[in-house]
Write a protein that binds this DNA or RNA. Sequence first.
DNA 1: CTCCTTTTGTTGTAAAAACAACAGAATCGT
DNA 2: ACGATTCTGTTGTTTTTACAACAAAAGGAG
Lengths: 224, 224
Amino acid sequence: MQKYIKTLKGTRLFSGVGEDEILSMLGCLQARKQTFRKGDLVFRRGEHIRNLTILAEGKLLIQKDDFWGNRSIVNVIHEGEMFGEAYITPESGAILNDVTAEEDSTVLFFDIQRILTVCPSACKFHSLLIQNLFYAISEKNRNLVQKIGHMSKRSTRAKLLSYLSEQAGRHNAGTFTIPFNRQQLADFLSVDRSAMCSELSKMQEEGLLTYHKNKFTLHASEDL
Amino acid sequence: MQKYIKTLKGTRLFSGVGEDEILSMLGCLQARKQTFRKGDLVFRRGEHIRNLTILAEGKLLIQKDDFWGNRSIVNVIHEGEMFGEAYITPESGAILNDVTAEEDSTVLFFDIQRILTVCPSACKFHSLLIQNLFYAISEKNRNLVQKIGHMSKRSTRAKLLSYLSEQAGRHNAGTFTIPFNRQQLADFLSVDRSAMCSELSKMQEEGLLTYHKNKFTLHASEDL
DNA sequence: CTCCTTTTGTTGTAAAAACAACAGAATCGT
DNA sequence: ACGATTCTGTTGTTTTTACAACAAAAGGAG
């Protein structure tokens, strides 16, 4: 568990909390860890979630398959991010999506009640933790809204441009690497992979962008 | 302000808090109210949000227009719901969407820091309030994921069915009223209005459903 | 009630996406 | 290094959607 203290220090949830405090909080929050192999299911649709979970290592995909076999990738979870937290509340039913390990991954589980309940003997940093929890889930929320922004675009090209320019903004650079392969990007934007591939080709031909594997470079329109 | 105590009592945020306590908390949280006429902007894209806001009366739409003039409705806010909360955090920039009053509306503003900061002299129900805040924003999150579920469907028909069956589930009945007119429903699902209208016609013709204005009835497939 | 505005439904056409099938490239395990 | 598998790109066909233009219905204001 010690091994992940540094990772936790970098997470939204423990932001501002010192390593020593994190160590003591791990006990207070009844932390538990579990490892998953690539392809394993971390949560399965229909499961009831009782813990706050953080990805300590690896990469996860939140995805949903409908009964026509269409897969939709709702979100990617990177190292240090929290997930499944929206389905911990009493009024929420079971989780509606599968969470699968895209790489070998390590997940930490925390007792949510210990975080939400402010007892008199609370750790010194408890209040900060609560604030961080609020900030973290707010960020999730904003990400979902942004994804909706991409998906709401009418054409595949517009969806791609919306997503890619967001990524460029996030990396603060015209060149960046995306966390998806082609099929996954298509599933994320809810478009057909092959159609998306050919659209990417066209855009490259037209000089809008260049790409190789997952590395993309957007070209500014040189008009002035 | 007194007038809205009963409404507040029914909200997620104040769930479990008595009317007397709410009254005293209103002061503690520095509540402020503002009214808007139909069509007014409650928040404008680019604005920085500093308060937790609850809709006390009326109906709001969270929407975004891109520079091609396509409008996308991200969400509806009904009476008693919280909104804009994801953009209060320090790391979030300005809000990315417009929030407009779909009807004459009354909005209450609360000081978020007073909610998040657990001081020793905190109101008795403060801990409950924090828990409720977490639950409320979690619910928002689940709603966004559900919307993504609708939008991820490939065809207009599948999007409609996904949305309508969710609504049926929510109302726990095959007959229900949706909070959108046709244009708004199209903007919510990100499809063309006229195409959607004709798709609805076809579905009615095929006996899948019946509708009149905003009132829909889904017909179970009578196969057995 | 009547006019005016907004909303809803209809149709045809042009554009775009989904789908399917395949070839080439990259990656992985042994 | 090898074959097997997965990933990426290409193309042609079919289906669906967007778009535009208009008619019908509903709702509001005076």
